[in-house]
Simulated assay, not measured.
Amino acid sequence: MRYLSGLRPAVAALVLSCGFIAHADAGQSTAIVELFTSQGCSSCPPANANLVRLSKEPDILTLSFSVTYWDYLGWKDSFGKKEFTDRQTAYEPALGQSGAFTPQMVINGRESIVGQDFNEIRRVIDSEPPLSGPPISLSTHGVVVGAGKGIPAPVDIWLVQYGPGIVQVPVARGENAGETLPHAHVVHELQRLATWQGETVMLPIPSAHRGLKRAVIVQEQNGGRIVAGATD
Rank of each mutant, 00 (worst) to 15 (best):
R122S: 11
D117A: 11
P103D: 04
R123L: 08
V106A: 10
S112F: 01
G142T: 08
I107Y: 01
L138Y: 08
S137R: 09
P103Q: 06
V106E: 12
I136T: 06
L138M: 12
G142M: 03
G142N: 03
S137V: 15
R122F: 03
E128G: 05
N108G: 05
E128I: 02
P135M: 11
N108C: 12
E128N: 09
G133M: 04
P134V: 11
E120W: 07
R122T: 14
S132Q: 13
I113E: 02
G133C: 08
R110G: 10
R110L: 11
Q104F: 09
I125K: 05
V124W: 00
R110W: 03
L131N: 06
I107M: 06
S112A: 14
I125D: 04
P130E: 08
S132T: 08
E111H: 14
V114S: 10
M105D: 07
I121K: 03
E120M: 10
D117K: 07
Q104R: 13
Q104N: 05
M105H: 09
P134N: 08
I125A: 04
Q104D: 06
E111W: 08
P129V: 05
V114D: 03
R110M: 11
E111I: 14
S139Q: 08
D117S: 13
D117I: 10
D126L: 03
V114I: 09
S127C: 07
G142R: 01
R122N: 13
I136Y: 01
R123I: 02
R110Y: 03
E120Q: 15
D126N: 11
P129M: 06
G115K: 04
P135F: 06
N119E: 13
L138P: 03
